[in-house]
């Protein structure tokens, strides 16, 4: 690692002031620390967000569920159990137990890895990403691989999720990294169904509109046919065609899990 200074603010206001310069925010560090070790980043100053109590916790209200940006995956999984079981399932299978005890929802969304789990949950539920400056709809937030609507130094302070009638997450795990090879989040609302796919597209997480249309008319696995368009990721773990094929498989499994009320399922893939 290149040398850097580390700042440990205890309030959002202090963190914001510290991030006004060239500094970079550090969430749970489960992606950023490995990146620093590879010398792929040279931030000068890291502003550690884990000591900011006002950015932690899960609260349920009439408008849905709000999760603080500094909430770990493990805390989110526990806090979401009753409110949104599909999202609780998603959080409960990110990485491994030790990663879930450090990694945060805000860090994952800000990083927007094209194979990360949280972006699928946020886009699939139509969440609102709350920052220190504004509120951003999930449909506007994700703008491509590792690219979001966030400005430099902007902090994800919370994420608000509407509560669906039913939802589930289905994930084909890439066993070495435990990221999804492809995963689908499906959510049924009174006014229609949303389907978000992660791990597949070169443009990062996306909504599969054709599947949404079919499922809005008939919420059953059999109606999910065909394949999404667009450039797909190809690497040693799976070809573009394989990933394109998995989109429908994962979506059908997620629909089945949503109907069964199990929250989701995972299987080890290539």
């Amino acid at each position: 690692m290149y040398a850097f200074d580390i700042e440990r603010p205890t309030s959002l206001a202090d963190a914001k002031a510290l991030l006004a310069g060239e500094a970079q925010a550090l969430g749970g560090g489960q992606t950023l620390i490995p990146t620093l070790k590879q010398r792929l980043a040279d931030p000068g100053t890291l502003v550690c967000l884990s000591g900011i109590a006002e950015m932690k916790g899960v609260t349920s209200g009439p408008d849905g569920v709000a999760i603080g940006g500094g909430t770990t995956h493990a805390e989110a999984a526990e806090g979401l159990k009753d409110a949104i079981p599909g999202l609780a399932y998603l959080a409960s299978r990110i990485g491994d137990p030790a990663v879930r005890n450090r990694g945060t929802i805000g860090g994952s969304l800000a990083n927007d890895d094209p194979s990360a789990c949280w972006p699928a949950g946020a886009l699939g539920l139509g969440a609102t990403i709350v920052t220190d400056a504004r509120e951003i709809a999930a449909d506007d937030f994700f703008q491509g691989m590792f690219t979001t609507a966030l400005e430099d130094g902007e902090i994800v302070t919370a994420v608000r999720f509407p509560v669906p009638e039913a939802s589930a997450y289905s994930k084909m795990i890439q066993p070495a990294s435990r990221f999804p090879l492809v995963a689908a989040f499906v959510a049924r609302f009174p006014d229609g169904v949303r389907v978000a796919i992660t791990g597949a597209s070169e443009d990062g997480v996306f909504r599969w509109r054709e599947a949404e249309g079919a499922l809005s008319a008939d919420f059953s696995p059999e109606v999910v046919t065909g394949q999404p368009e667009g450039p797909m990721i190809a690497d040693l773990h799976g070809t573009a065609d394989y990933r394109r094929h998995l989109c429908a498989v994962m979506t059908r499994r997620a629909v089945r899990a949503a109907l069964d009320g199990t929250g989701g399922l995972s299987s080890a893939g290539a």
């Binding site: 580390i6 560090g29 620390i33 550690c48 000591g51």
Partner: peptide
């Protein structure tokens, strides 16, 4: 040293954490 193997796992405030993937300064 790449956050994969778990040989460095310890408990921090009772929770399992990979000691190679947390800075000492964060854990004051």
């Amino acid at each position: 040293d790449t956050s994969q193997c778990g040989a460095c796992a310890v408990h921090v405030d009772g929770k399992l954490v990979k000691a190679c993937t947390a800075f000492a300064a964060e854990l004051d």
